[in-house]
Design a protein around this nucleic acid. Structure first.
Lengths: 161, 161
DNA sequence: GTGCCACTTCAAGTGAACTTCAAGTCAAGG
DNA sequence: CCTTGACTTGAAGTTCACTTGAAGTGGCAC
């Protein structure tokens, strides 16, 4: 199977397949000249990647999962953790959705006069459903840059969380 | 209120407030010298922005909502649409979460031998919960680049969706 | 044999939402 | 008055997941 066919059968652009290869997510079984030759398993692999992404894993996280050896050997702890994370996210989204649905039918002249609206607004302000909180909670907590400035902190987001 | 206080009270870094100002999301009531002076309403405004973000609106979308005049005047159609979008997203995430939770306790020797796992894997492959499908569906559908190559299409993601 | 064009590589660009940096300003406390 | 350090600006950098472009190679149909 050449890259075009793998692309067609996986539904992913060839450029993505090449990109995934550089990331170590997939690998051709060989080359025909310069051209990549993929085995059939690449499709399962790609499905797994897609699945992982849908579950909120980053490509790097996915790479780690089935790096080293060949087969996935996904650890259950990680899955469980991600399930819990998803669950939290779902709860927040449900709250949001309900809030929005209420806002749609809310009779209050201004949204600001509606207690429900004010409640979710408060939650937003409180960081309960903050911006950064929303999308897959910080995958890379950033290895703490040496902290050059000792005193004057640029800005703190203290209050939140 | 200076920018530091607005930052502290909103829980957002000052840099974000400046950024939001360039985006037209907030505006200082004036300046004391070079320094911005914010009115108290900025906090409500910021809460609204945070809320909008949490609901999945982009900053640009939010800007449009309360641009022009002062007050929000959020249209209900838009809210309803976003609520439906959230709902779809929630369903997908719930499916994912359930799949993950199953995988955690699944007795099958390999995840691949588990029908439930294979099912969500299939769904992933089918694009039902594809990568691009996951996060807030393409805000900017991209104005269709003139399509220079008439015949050979670089790669199509045809099957998906 | 030969020419086309699907492939190849590597670098750079995209977009969203910010953050960080360097260099400069200036309000206020001492 | 002078220093301090919190503010200012604009540009550039960051992250993630890709896409796009330019320039080059070579498999395969003819």
């Amino acid at each position: 199977m050449d890259i075009a066919e793998a692309a067609r059968r996986s539904g992913l652009p060839a450029s993505t397949l090449r990109f995934y290869e550089t990331k170590g997510l997939i690998a051709p079984v060989g080359r025909r000249g310069l051209r990549r030759v993929f085995g059939p398993d690449v499709l399962e692999r790609l499905a797994l990647v897609t699945l992982g992404r849908a579950a909120g894993f980053s490509l790097d996280e996915i790479a780690v999962m089935f790096a080293a050896d060949g087969r996935p050997r996904i650890d259950r702890q990680r899955l469980a953790a991600k399930a819990r994370e998803l669950d939290r996210r779902i709860r927040r989204l449900v709250a949001m959705r309900d809030g929005l649905e209420h806002a749609v039918v809310c009779p209050a002249r201004s949204h600001f006069e509606c207690p429900t609206f004010r409640r979710i607004l408060g939650a937003a302000a409180a960081g309960t459903l903050g911006p950064r909180t929303l999308e897959a909670a910080r995958r890379t907590p950033k290895p703490a840059p040496p902290a050059r400035r000792s005193k004057a902190k640029v800005a703190r987001r203290a209050g939140a969380r």
